[in-house]
Every structure is written in C-alpha cells, then in structure tokens.
Write a protein that binds this DNA or RNA. Structure first.
Lengths: 213, 213, 213, 213
DNA sequence: GCATAAACGAGACGGTACGTCTAGTCTTACT
DNA sequence: AGTAAGACTAGACGTACCGTCTCGTTTATGC
C-alpha cells in the first residue's frame, strides 16, 4: 500500500483536472453511513464507493486505506463538541462529560474510535493523523475549561508552563479515558448520576466520593 | 458462524479421541506470537494454525473466530497483574498503575485490547467474554485495594453496598481508562512521574495537583 | 502470476481433499460457452467462474491464466477431427480440409486459436502447451493420411526417415496454414469448390490449377 | 467507444490548431517499440502515450483503440516487401518466401499480426482495416509475380478473369498461410531448405517432393 | 493584432477485471 | 471422534488500464 496519498503534491497542483470537492463530501458522508449500518469490520471500500456514487479508485487516490478514510470521516463529528458555560466548573465538567458520552453512544463513533486506535498501535503515521484530527480537537476543550475556571477564580494560575501542560494532559487523559472506558469497555451508560460522581472524584479525589460522616 | 464451540459438550465428552491439550497451548502461544509480529488486522487464522503446527479445523473446533481466539490468548497475560502491598494506599496505587502500564506496553496486549474492544461494540457475546476474561480480572484488584486500605484505616467503610459497588466501578474506570488512554490514544509513556501525579489527582482531586501556595 | 500450477504436485497427491473432477468439467464447458458469447478479449475469469458455479480461486488453482485455460478448453474440440476413408487420397484430403474448415467456423475455435497463438509468441511454456494440446493432435492426421495413401499405392514410400518427417511437416503447414489463412485472415469461406482447387494444387502443383488445354 | 475518429472530419479541417504530424510519427514509433518489448497483451495505451511524450487524449483523437493503432503501426512494415526479379519463377518464389518469413521473425510483427487477426474475428470494421492496410499489400505481390511469370512464359494466361482471381487468391492463401503457420504455430524456422521444398511443392505438387525414382 | 477554434499536456473520473488473500466449511484418509 | 491436509465457496483487497472528462495552455488561421 502506498503510504499516504491524501495531500495532492503541492508544486504541480495547478495542472490537470482538479479533484472533485463534491466527491470528497459524498465519500465522507457515505463512510459515516456505512459505519453506522455495518460497523468497522464489515465496512468495505467498495461499498463506500458505491454508496458515494464514486469509483473505488477515487477513494484510493485520496486515502491510503480504510483506517485513514474512517479517521477523516469521523473527525468532523468531534467538531460539534463545545464547552458549555454554565457558570461553575462543576456544572461545566458534568455537562462536558455527558456530551462526550453522548458522542460515544453514536454507532459511527463507537466502533470507529477503538478500531482506529487499535490499528494505530502499529502505524505511526496513522497515530499522528488521529492526534491531529481527533485528540487535539478535544484537548483544546480542557484548556478552555481551565482558563474559564481560572477566570472565575475556581482554579489557581499555574506559574510553570511545563507543569501547566502536564496537568492539562493528565486531566484530559482522566476525563476522556474514564468516559471511553465506561462506555466501551465496561459497556455501561454514562448517565447524569455517574457524571456527578465522576466530577466529584475528579475535583476532590477519592476520599470525597464516600464522604466521612 | 456457529455460536461458540469453545467448551466441549459435556455429555459425550468421554467418547472418541480426546482433544489434544498440547494443541491448545501451541495455538494460544502461536496467537500471541503472531499478534506481536503482525498486529490484529494482519493476523490470520491460517497463519496461526501453521505456526502452531495444527490444522485450521482444529482452531475452529475450539474457537468461533479470530476475536474469541485472541481474547483467550491475551487473557492469561492479565493474570500476572497482582496488587502489591507496599504499606500505603498511595504507594499501592502508584505501583499498580505502573504495572498495568507495563502490561499495555507489550505489543501483544497493545493491539489486542483495543481491537477486541472495537470488535465487541457490535457483538454482545464477545463483550461478555471480554468482561469475564479480562475486565473482571482487573476489577478484583480495585476491590482488594480498597479492602486493604480500609483495613489500614486509610479509607472509610461504605455502609450501602450499592454505593460501594458504584464507587468501585467508578474508580476502576478512572484508573484503567486513564492509563489506557494515556498509553494508546495520547501515545505517551506512563512513567513514575505521571503515576505520582495521577495518584495524587485520584486521591485528592484536581485542586491538589496544582497546590495553592 | 505463479508460472503454471496445473498439475497437482505428484508426491503428496494423496493427502487432503482431492480436486473435484466435476468442477474441471464445468469450468471447461463454461469457458467454451463464454468464448462463443463474448469472444476472447471480453471473456473474463470471473465470468467463467460464475458460469461454472465455482469460485475464482478454483480456476486459479488449476490454470495460471486465461490463455492456459482457453487452450485446454478448446483442445478437446480438435479430438473430433478424424481422417475419413473415402477410398482415394484426393477425396480424403478434400474431406479433411472441409472438416477442418468447419471446425474453424465455430466461434469458440475462431477467436481462441489466433488469440492463443498471439499470446504464445511471448511465452515458450504456452507454446509448448499449444503444441501438445492442439498441433500434435492434427499432425497425426497427416501421418495417417500418408500411410493410407502409401498402402493404396498412391504415394511412394520414403526411405530416409528425416526426409519423410520434413515432408510431413511441410504438408501439414501447407494444409493447416492455407485453411486457417483463408478462413481467418482472408475471411472467405472454405467451400467444396475451394477445397477441390486447393487439393489439386497440393497434389499436382500450381501449373495444374489452370490446366493448359 | 466512438466508432472511428481517425480522419479529421473534412469540413472544418482548416480552422483551429492543426494536428501535429510529429505526434503521429512519435506515436507509431512508440507503438512498435512497445510491441517489441511487451507484446500485444501487455501493451497499454497509457504506456504508448508516455513513450511518445504525448497525452492519452492525443492517441484517442486519432485512433479508436489499441487494435486500430497497432494495425496502422505495423502496416508500414509490410511496405518493405518487394518482389525480387531473379529471372525465374522458382527463384522469385523462394526469395519471396524468405523475405516474408524474415518479416514475421521480427517481434513487432509476430505478436501484432496474430493478435490483431484474433481481435478481428469479432469486428468487421477492424477486419476491413487489416485487409486494406496489410493483406492487400501482400496480395499485389502474388499478382505481380504471376504477371511476370506469364511474361516469361512460365505460366499460361488464364482467359476467365473469375478463375484467374480465384487462383491468385488460392495461391496467396497457400503461400502466406504456410509461412505464417510454420513460423508462428509450428514455431519452426523458415530457412532456405524449407523454402526450396515448399516452392517445389507449390509449383509441382506433393508427388514432386518425394520424387519417384 | 486579436479573436476564434481546435489541438495539446496533465491528470481526475467512473468502470471493469485482475490475481491474491482470508474466512470459514467440507472432504479425504489416518490416528 | 479427533486430526492434518488441502480443496471448496464467497467476497474484499489494492492495482492497472480503459476510454472519457475537464482543466489551463498553445498554436494555427482569419477577420
């Protein structure tokens, strides 16, 4: 398999017939639809092409394989994630957790995420693609949330930028990890009650969830 | 696909040539080896059979498919996870996190876990198998850890058994989720420093990681 | 493409499931049918497989490609060529020419022969296959015809076996070549009148066809 | 496929940019080169275009497909065939046979001829093109040869023009057929010895090749 | 000298077939 | 009955060409 066509080589990007933007849209939409109906493992390139009303070659001209295509197709779904402003850190985190969980309930996201991550364990390029297309999109929300909480006076300002980055990363992994694990591995619902308990744990620690009388 | 051969039907288990236990071991070992070399998506039943010096039929007589085989092959790896007793809850959690992360660094675990989870999003039977073979094995450790901490007086006893169960589940999802996410999605190492920061967050909350001067 | 699977490797020909003779017959029949309907260039392996009610792999397990398959499929048609015994060399040759022409009129033979020969100009193995499967089958008829004519006293016995072989080859190329060329290149019919003129030319030379009064 | 572009439609042939004669030459040369290297079946329009330093569109503007292109590319090779005048019919025929055989030894002619003929069995238009471009070019030689032999008194004049035409056609099919069959089907060389034996057969018949003592 | 009209290069497009691979089943003969 | 071997159906894979199309550019003429 060729590494990653994807980006048209810049220098001679002006000559020849230009790529159809219409096709791009149709393919990504078809991919999401197929993902919902069939799941990752039964989704085939040929089927996506047919649904999109496009030739298989047109897919392969843009994406190197199933993984790359699905990452791009699913990435846009994460754009709808926005940080709510409910006036307090607790409320914001709870709402955020619920929104993220709702996204993971959707069948196209469910399978896609884990499958793509699994595939990425063997493929650095794919890992980077996931980071750029999905992970970084979410990480921004943590940074926004912290900034807002600091502005409200709910969190202190961290002087050392390295420590600040570390903390943001840590909190991001804890939130995303817990929600993903609960939803996909434990396979149990993230409901408002769970979100409340989780938020309390996140903000005040394990000792806070079973408060000493 | 036949549902799940797996266990030899009990009644007539005595007649005919008995199944080779040697074959079982060889197959599982071959599966792990193939997983390391090829990763989930390029691992094939035929290849595993060849490596194990066994006919494909023999595989299908014992497992219904790739997913089931891999789950069983990988499950034993989780048996080596044991809760250390280092005298304090903090030390125990930190050590546990590091051991779990070390397990996830190993290539056979890396790919297998996520891939199998991805596959399971569409398959309730597989989900159950994962729960029994892998998830529950880990969850026990959380319960052990809590019991030990309660014995030491580091954690209060929870009266309500429902609440107790909820809390154990929550803490399990947070620990496992954070480590898995850090390792496989963020693709960054779980080193002692991260383990320390994470443990502090887990026990005392977000406010504790950037302590107010 | 692997060179030429075709013959099952002899040594271990006893173990495993034996090849289906039924499939062989169905495939060759389907190939001839497809050849009639579609012609060489539009005949596809996939289509033949479908017609034969067989998987594509089953074709490729036996034949290396289209050319090899078609040669074998068409070869049997040449088995029906038999030397008539009409009592005289002239009558025998005329009848033979007409039968051979009739064979070449059939659509499956028409395209197949030339196309396969064309393909063979680049492929020694294929050339050999054609020789064994088709050419030698026809050459025998020339030898039979000569022997019969010699027995009748219509032709002298040639003492030198090398000269005898040369002559047989020459006559074979002239008969087969003329009929093929007339039929496929000049694209004109080989009717009894042409057969009579040709036979006179063959037996008595160019000067005999326009006899001096 | 559009029927046969080939000739620029006459009416508006004067306006717009004229077709490049340079391109025509380059394409035909490239076709012959590709034919030598790759043979008919592996020759592709795209490859010919690249070799000729020309866009694929430029090919399709002139020829309807591979067959048409190859016929034209190969046809010129037959122009070099000329009837030698060695003073006697026997010598002329022998020389002619050797020249024709030499032409068929050349790889571009070898494959092209048979492949194109094979293709033509399903395509009347292509058949006509072959007749005009190749076959008729050769047939003239037979007519020339006969006229010369008649002038020399080696052959009688045929009164009936229909019979004369029939005879010319017959002799043409026998000569061309025998040489082509010997070269491409029997895959054996046409050397001077064979040419001598063939000529004797052609002029005096089968009884002459193994002369009665 | 400037518009017109066709040819040109490049390359994307919808298709079709290729030959390979894997899944999971079935058929032999052997253990 | 279990087993190794290997043939079987089914269907996806990624590639290669086909012949067409759509660009932007070039090159003749004719007004």
């Amino acid at each position: 398999m060729r590494s990653h066509p994807d980006l048209p080589t810049e220098p001679n990007a002006r000559i020849g017939r230009p790529r159809s933007a219409e096709a791009d849209r149709a393919i990504l939409a078809a991919t999401r639809a197929a993902l919902v109906e069939l799941g990752w493992s039964k989704l085939t390139m040929g089927d996506v092409a047919t649904r999109a009303g496009v030739a298989k070659t047109t897919l392969y001209r843009r994406w190197a394989g199933k993984s790359e295509l699905v990452v791009d197709a699913v990435a846009v779904l994460f754009d709808e994630l926005e940080l709510p402003d409910l006036g307090s850190l607790v409320a914001d985190v709870e709402a955020m957790v619920l929104r993220f969980a709702a996204l993971l309930e959707r069948p196209e996201t469910r399978t896609a995420m884990m499958a793509v991550v699994a595939e990425a364990t063997r493929d650095e390029a794919l890992r980077k693609r996931i980071r750029v297309a999905i992970v970084d999109r979410q990480k921004v929300l943590v940074l926004q949330g912290r900034a807002r909480a600091q502005a409200r006076g709910e969190l202190p300002y961290e002087r050392d930028p390295v420590t600040a980055a570390h903390n943001a990363d840590l909190i991001f992994d804890v939130i995303a990890g817990a929600v993903v694990h609960r939803t996909l591995v434990s396979a149990e619902p993230v409901d408002p009650a769970w979100a409340r308990r989780f938020t309390r744990l996140l903000l005040h620690g394990a000792s806070a969830v079973t408060p000493r009388p």
